[in-house]
Amino acid sequence: MIQLQNVTLTFPDGENRITAVDNASLRGNNGTVTGITGPSGSGKSSILAVAATLLRPDSGGVLIGNGSDMTDAAQLPKHEATQLRREGIGIVFQQSNLLPALTAREQLQVMARLGGGTSRNKRAKIDARVDELLDAVGLTEHAGKRTHQLSGGQRQRIAIARGLVHEPEVLLIDEPTSALDQERGAKIMELISRLTHERDTATLLVTHDLAHRHTLDDLVTVLDGRITTPIAGRALIR
């Protein structure tokens, strides 16, 4: 589970500060896809960046975990936040952001090698799951291909598999269909929904494309940094 509690994030703007996220609270439960929508500049990507520990909020907490084993990611020192991203959070970027020199299989394998001092057991564990995830996203036959040999949809599926290969508690996805046509976009959204449910992951998904809203379990709207409209309602902490 991931829970944002009263998160406020500001940026310097000349002598003043502008508020990107204004006292936002939000919960993503395990096994659910929580959509975050809103117009451009509303602060939805900033919420995702805070959830990913890429930005530290001015105030508020980002709790990740389950039951009594919850970590406030907003309070972690930098190296621990990096470790959390490596072990507890999966990130899927707006564009796939795959590494051009790596094959599809290696895009997943690299997740076991990010820490430098990765243990052999952990590496073997992740490597063993690579084939399973490639199969789950339907790209087993393309495992040896590099980025430029894959279509946009295939790249995004590899990115999703990369986000899940280390079995994270939380999966954060930024505009996964923005570069895809309707048909491919629908397939990606269905894939995200299926894998989230199968793997019991707490998925937060930023999108301004509501054509596939039926694949979301929850949806909140962000406007001027505030979470304003609970559409399904379950994700909003009142």
Binding site: L84, R85, R86, I89, L114, G115, G116
Partner: peptide, 12 residues
């Protein structure tokens, strides 16, 4: 930047 976002340490 992508590798860092995914959790790579600067040292590695």
């Amino acid at each position: 930047a992508v590798l860092k976002a995914l959790g790579a340490t600067t040292g590695s």
